[in-house]
Each structure stands twice: as structure tokens, then as C-alpha cells.
Amino acid sequence: MSEIPHQARGAIALDAAACTSCMLCVKECPDWCIHIESHNEEVSEPGARRPRSVAVLDSFTIDWGLCMYCGICVEVCPFDALHWVPEHDYPAPDAQGLRHGIARLEEFGPS
């Protein structure tokens, strides 16, 4: 039996708290397999002259059926919200099941 190297490119995990919805990964993905939905909220801080606008992540989806595991999204993310994990056991009974949202991508766990 083989040991799977810890750096194996099995799946890409998401740290949603680190994601700023900047869309860099979506724009750079050659396969168009990442989709992000977000909206802006205004945050008022005591003493600030005006409210701050922050992007709030609504959904983050990777379609593993399309993904070519090139890792460009991991490379371009300025906030290290994406990282490789060696996980390989996630087949699906239908194509829709290969579209993983925030919860499922976070389940892949920390690096």
C-alpha cells in the first residue's frame, strides 16, 4: 500500500474567514470552475468619520467536475484563503455532487 504525500494535490480547501471576495481566483481560473457571490455591507465604527464598506461572502463554489487542479487560484489568493489538501475520497453520484460550496470546502480542513 502506498502512503499519500502530505503535499499531494488532492483537493483545494477554503478558509472562508480569510476570503475577501476579491474575485482574483475566479478571474484567473482557466477553467471557469470557481463561482463567488458576495455583497457589500457598511460597518460603522465609533470615532470613524464615515462607515466602512466590507465585502461579505455569500457563496463560494468550486466545480470539481471541471477543475484541472492547476492551483492557480491557490497561487493568486492574496489572503491564503485557499490551500491544497491531500484528500482524494470525494466521488459523487451525479455531476451536481461535484459542486462544493463553502461548508464542504471548509470540511477539507486546515493545511
Binding site: 470539481w64 467536475g65 487542479y69 492547476c70 482524494h88 453520484p93 455532487g97
Partner: peptide, 12 residues
């Protein structure tokens, strides 16, 4: 069954 990967590992 759909197996994700490009390519998937043999273990997959």
C-alpha cells in the same frame, strides 16, 4: 459515479 481529479489519484 463521478471521480473528481485531473487526474484523480489511483486511490480515488
Amino acid at each position: 459515479t463521478y471521480v473528481p481529479g485531473c487526474p484523480p489519484r489511483p486511490e480515488a
